[in-house]
Design a protein around this nucleic acid. Sequence first.
DNA 1: ATTGCAATCGTTATCGGTTACGTTTGCAGG
DNA 2: CCTGCAAACGTAACCGATAACGATTGCAAT
Lengths: 335, 335
Amino acid sequence: MADGGAPVTMSDVARLAGVSTATVSRVVNRRYGVRASTVEQVRAAIEQLGYETSLVATSLRSSRTNVLGLVTHSFQSYTAEVLKGVMDALRQSGFDLIVYANSDLYGTYSDGWEQRHLARLSGTLTDGCIVVTPSREVRSGTPVVVIDPARGSEAPSVTADNFAGATAVVEHLLGLGHRRIGFIAGRAGIEAAWSREQGYRTALAEAGVPIDPRLIARGSFDPDSAAPLARALLERPDRPTAVFAASDGMALKTLEVAGELGLRVPGDLSVAGFDNIPESALAEPRLTTVDQSMYRLGNEAARMLMSLVRGDWEGPRRVVLPTRLVVRGSTAAPG
Amino acid sequence: MADGGAPVTMSDVARLAGVSTATVSRVVNRRYGVRASTVEQVRAAIEQLGYETSLVATSLRSSRTNVLGLVTHSFQSYTAEVLKGVMDALRQSGFDLIVYANSDLYGTYSDGWEQRHLARLSGTLTDGCIVVTPSREVRSGTPVVVIDPARGSEAPSVTADNFAGATAVVEHLLGLGHRRIGFIAGRAGIEAAWSREQGYRTALAEAGVPIDPRLIARGSFDPDSAAPLARALLERPDRPTAVFAASDGMALKTLEVAGELGLRVPGDLSVAGFDNIPESALAEPRLTTVDQSMYRLGNEAARMLMSLVRGDWEGPRRVVLPTRLVVRGSTAAPG
DNA sequence: ATTGCAATCGTTATCGGTTACGTTTGCAGG
DNA sequence: CCTGCAAACGTAACCGATAACGATTGCAAT
């Protein structure tokens, strides 16, 4: 058993087994060139001391750690789904996962968090990283797969078909008879936000509905940022009959604001979101949205990253997954 | 800008600034003994090269990293809630978080994962760790806070009042008129599982209802392990009129199995769970359960851990948080 | 007996950053 | 001009593990 005090190091094992640390290392890493009896001695010493190889020391010395990293700046519902997908992809793969999240010391959206975290992990601690929703291009010495890349990013990425999803929502609203459809956009600079806005614009244009810039609010995917935007939209004298928010978090905030203003959904106002986070199915009314399966995004990203690390990735550098319109109770024909 | 290739090291900065790495280290760590003009030079070099301190190298040498660890063997809904609570507690604290999860199958991972992961992280990489649901006592050179400790664990811990929660559920079922109440227990060895079973037994005993051992099934908290157990319970000729599962995951499986057997819930069978994971509110029918706020568990654990690391923890070594019975549609009077 | 080759194992440089310690420098006081 | 004392900075020894390399041994073929 390991005692609670000082950690057991490789040299402790070596001393007990009467060999050098080199031999212990070879045994631990199952390398060729150690006599069977010596292997037994070392194994026994490891068992007796409860020795565990130090991830830190290993990664400092060696380029291979069999650990993948996931870097995120916040931890919300969709991040959890991504993680589930990643973990399931990693099952039995031999890769472990390290998730690195920061405590927001420098403010909510201090630019460059992705690069900072990446620099702290990659190069040594991890064999490769998944980066969730970075706001700018990332660079790294080890393979990187980005979920929802920054606009114009060249990095290998996995993303949902945001354009198709957004057009589907807007076409749904148009089909119900809406003509004044507000839009709360996501954080500028993120590919997904841009595509969703393009989807919104394209769907309106193809239906021959003129685009009113005053109905487009610029959010940041942060639910709290959406509240004042939604309020401003809904307090207009010519308020929209429907609001499409670029994320469920913002859509749910819009539901709240509508409630505060005495607007009934979907009677007085239709609301639609994007993401299909679990909370959306719990909201009152249940939120119409676009499912983009964060689980699959995480799952695909992990598969891709493992292949990149092994150097046998054959697929495209950019994977786009289909989306699915989920019609629930928050949308209806305009009153 | 950092180039994408080799990572920028401290000696690169030192070379550019014309000083030694020791001086760079002093500047980075804001130590005394560096002339203001030298500090400026070093800062400029850091900026120019886009240098980021390596977490690995720092932690190997120094005992303090300002990073806390969270160790878990699986990644499910409740883990996500815990993480949210942890991250919120860490906000603006200056501590970052590393989550370490392994890639093995949930059930098949051999005992001792908690100690292995802990050994790999603590001592160097992290200043302290939160361990989620270990199956045995954990030892570590750095502070540890356990969420849902093993039975008989001495480690500082945060846990819900599982006993009270379980009695509340069973009293609720008894109050509805149920007398044959099945129980699907959790993983033996975990304090929470034991307390929930004690709650079940105590509530029955106090109501004067004899305990039928054949109505107690031994699960492992793994939802998949619950399916055959639930089936066995429900296929008995004298099947229970209600089933209380020690976790929502297992309760939801029980709902599925009941459906497959043609039993209607709550008409033919009442089902209750424990945890109140988000999915429980989405199930059909919505699941009666006990809310134990995994969010608060994570939040409290993180606060406790930060205090322990700083050495100023004043509270009790074992924190017990209250639970709350949530009655929904899956329980009713027996037909 | 000698050579050759492979198996086995120890020595040592190294990864990047930290820190104890020693050395240099600057400046005030004698 | 010399001494004394800090401040400022460099040197080198680490931390734990790995891998290139060299050294030793065993064994079989010559």
